[in-house]
Design a protein around this nucleic acid. Structure first.
Lengths: 147, 147
DNA sequence: ATGTTAAGTGATATTTATTATCATTTAATA
DNA sequence: TATTAAATGATAATAAATATCACTTAACAT
């Protein structure tokens, strides 16, 4: 196939380096996560793969996500409603903007983030290691549908 | 008692306005949440009250938090590890700084927040309704203990 | 004060998401 | 091709939150 999935290759390499086998199921999961523009949920991934692998187990999806998280190759996005979605494309903490209507997730580029991190460290005297910035709202296309 | 709990009174008033009864259990829960410098969990609240009300049910804590959330008088803080903690003192979205060692939560005042909100709206074309900003790190006292 | 009633509570069952278990299968290496 | 540790599939177990239901009680009217 002519789909050179660079990010997927990186993940596969990382798995190999750490002595993990590359099974067809694992490959399918990685492939989806590496593209993951849509920040899929476990169920999303499961359903997507099940059309090709009817024998795929949900546990395998969970197991592989756990593994990929531990390797730092997938970022878990936990939402206030308790649902989790995953980003294997850019597995580093970064801001998200989520549409509460269509559930679309956008990754904004925020110049003010660096400044804010400095401000937090200065004000609280914490050593900041990690962060989670989510903005919830309604995207322009959902707004347009509200005639 | 000379503890004039202004915030607690506000919550009680809101409950009355909406036709809810003020039971001793409910009062105890509100009292803890209104002070809530420590951003307690459901279990925290349950354990605290159980010393005085040995008959208190965990379900009652959940029920009352649900009610207070629906009235906008309590803010639920959901964390990446799946745990939830509650803020009845300032039930409006605001940034938190969490120590991953001692679990302390600090509310920083961030001047750069307004600027960031503007930047997000401008860049993504979303109508921003809500946000969640959490910074994770190690507080100064925990740092000091690491001789 | 007392009785009435809808709301609240306690105890427990149910649900849902995730993790653990274990027999079987398979990828990787020799 | 054989060997073996790791992975999988099916299912059980766990944990957090919610639902159920009989019983109790706060609030209101009398």
């Amino acid at each position: 196939m002519a789909d050179h999935n660079k990010r997927g290759d990186t993940i596969i390499r990382k798995l190999r380096e750490n002595g993990h086998k590359i099974t067809p199921q694992r490959l399918a999961i990685v492939k989806i996560l590496a593209v993951s523009d849509g920040h899929p949920s476990v169920e999303d991934i499961y359903e997507q793969i099940r059309t090709d692998f009817p024998t795929m187990s949900l546990a395998t999806v969970y197991r592989n996500i756990l593994l990929l998280k531990s390797l730092g190759e997938v970022l878990e996005l936990g939402f206030p409603d308790g649902s989790n979605r995953y980003d294997g494309n850019k597995p580093v903490p970064h801001p998200h903007v989520i549409c509460i209507r269509c559930k679309k997730i956008v990754d904004p580029v925020l110049d003010s983030l660096d400044e804010m991190k400095k401000e937090v460290a200065l004000e609280t005297d914490f050593k900041i290691l990690n962060h989670r910035l989510d903005f919830f709202g309604i995207c322009s296309s959902c707004m347009a549908e509200n005639k």
